[in-house]
Simulated scan of single mutants.
Amino acid sequence: MNRILFPVLGLVIFIFGCGNNDTVPNDKSDESNNLETVLDSTEYFEKAIFADASSPTPYWNRAAWHLRNARVREGLFDLDLALEADSTYGPAWSAKADALYLMQRFEKCIEHLDVCLELSPEHVPCKLRRAEMHIHLNQFDEAFSVLNDALRIDDQIAEAYWMKGMIYRESGELDNALSSFQTSVEVNPSFFDGYIALGIAYGATSNPLAVDYYNSAIGLRPRSVEAKYNLAMYYQELMLEEAPARSIALEKALALYVSIIEIDSMNASAAFNSGYIYLEYLQDYENADFWFSEAIVRLPYYHQAFFNRGLARESMQLNSEALEDYNSALKLKPDYTQAALAKSRVLGES
């Protein structure tokens, strides 16, 4: 598949966030002002381990602390200690597999997941990650089997329905994909990825329901570049027969791209797409020139931006500047046929 189904760091946090927090103090105590400092210390975790050295939980908690602070080696060491304390402790197996995934040691990751499922067959995070690995390998039947096992344990797992939807979508079963995505947000109305998936699915057929789903995603994460970008692309690619309606859609797309740049000032794609709208749809070549230039500032090797800026400048009769842009595009991509043809055209007119 083209897309990684789980944001890796997000899943690390998810796995650790689902653990046993019995050793964590109540943050409503009188010492709450010092809680963050206390928790973020070696002393705190060593005391917890000393108090219950035979339990895997305090080692697992310290591993979570290490991994949240990018100390992968220390985190793996503590996960091994957790498994020495209890070799069937599913959270440690799944967390270790996830750390291996972060390190791109995928075969080892799969080995640990298989051990996890053997020793802790009811541990849902291991099932979800194992299903994902099956999907990466296009082993869809195996993925379905693992996901259905997870749903037999807990039929309210939004991620499982979403992953089934992704498999259906890859297999061309769009109705089943939509049904699975819909179920994912029904069981968890705060499930961001489900709304994104629904937006993409409905947007592919220009169904206005896409707007509702993207807006739901934005409501959950107002600063999400992904949700805003997808919605902008929906408006940009919406082919409406009536010119006023088409103009409104393009204005909405442009506003969203500006919003994206306010969130992510180095987002070259938002700048490029703005330029493309001005060039291709609005024939506003000055604004097109401006936004393609902004894209190039953000991504100096953006050969498409040089080419399109060349088109805008050629349309304004700025042939020398256009020629420079076509040459820049060809320098970055020597086999860029469109730029070569445009260069020949400009030279023929000179």
Rank of each mutant, 00 (worst) to 15 (best):
D78Y: 05
N69T: 09
A53E: 06
E43F: 02
W65Q: 02
E74I: 03
L100F: 11
E84Y: 02
N26G: 05
L39N: 08
S55V: 10
D98N: 15
I110Y: 03
V72P: 01
G90L: 06
R62S: 00
Y89W: 09
S29H: 09
Y44A: 03
P56S: 04
H66Y: 12
E107A: 14
S32D: 10
G17Q: 04
R71K: 12
N69S: 11
S94N: 12
S54K: 15
K108N: 12
A85D: 04
K47F: 02
E43S: 06
A99L: 08
W60G: 04
T42W: 00
A51I: 09
N20A: 02
E31P: 01
A95K: 09
P58G: 04
S54H: 12
K28A: 05
I110P: 01
A53M: 01
A92S: 13
Y44C: 03
Y89G: 06
I49C: 00
D52Y: 10
S87G: 06
S41A: 03
D98C: 15
T23M: 15
T23F: 15
Q104F: 09
C109S: 06
P58H: 10
S94V: 12
L81E: 02
Y101R: 14
P56F: 09
L100C: 07
L81I: 00
D86F: 02
R68Q: 11
F77R: 08
L35D: 08
G19M: 12
A92I: 10
T37N: 11
D78P: 00
G19S: 14
I110K: 14
Y59E: 00
D22I: 04
W60Y: 15
A53C: 00
I110E: 14
L113K: 05
K108Y: 06
E46P: 00
P58I: 07
H66W: 05
S54E: 14
T23N: 13
A82Q: 06
G75R: 06
A97F: 12
E74Y: 09
S29K: 09
Y101M: 13
E46F: 01
D30Y: 11
A48D: 02
N34F: 13
L79N: 03
K28T: 09
F50R: 07
T23Q: 14
L83N: 03
P56M: 04
R105C: 08
A95T: 12
G90V: 06
N20V: 03
G90T: 01
K108M: 06
G17K: 07
D80N: 13
L39W: 14
R71G: 01
E31A: 15
N26F: 07
I110N: 08
E111D: 14
A92V: 12
R73G: 07
A64M: 11
A82I: 10
D52E: 13
E74M: 10
W65V: 01
F77I: 08
H112N: 15
D40A: 07
P56N: 08
S41F: 04
A99K: 05
D98T: 15
D22Y: 06
K28S: 08
L83M: 11
N69H: 15
T88L: 07
I49T: 00
L67R: 02
I49S: 01
L79R: 02
W60I: 07
E36C: 02
P91M: 09
S41D: 03
R73T: 12
A53P: 04
L79S: 02
R105D: 14
D52V: 04
G90C: 04
E111K: 12
L83K: 11
N20F: 04
F50H: 04
S54V: 09
W60T: 09
A51T: 14
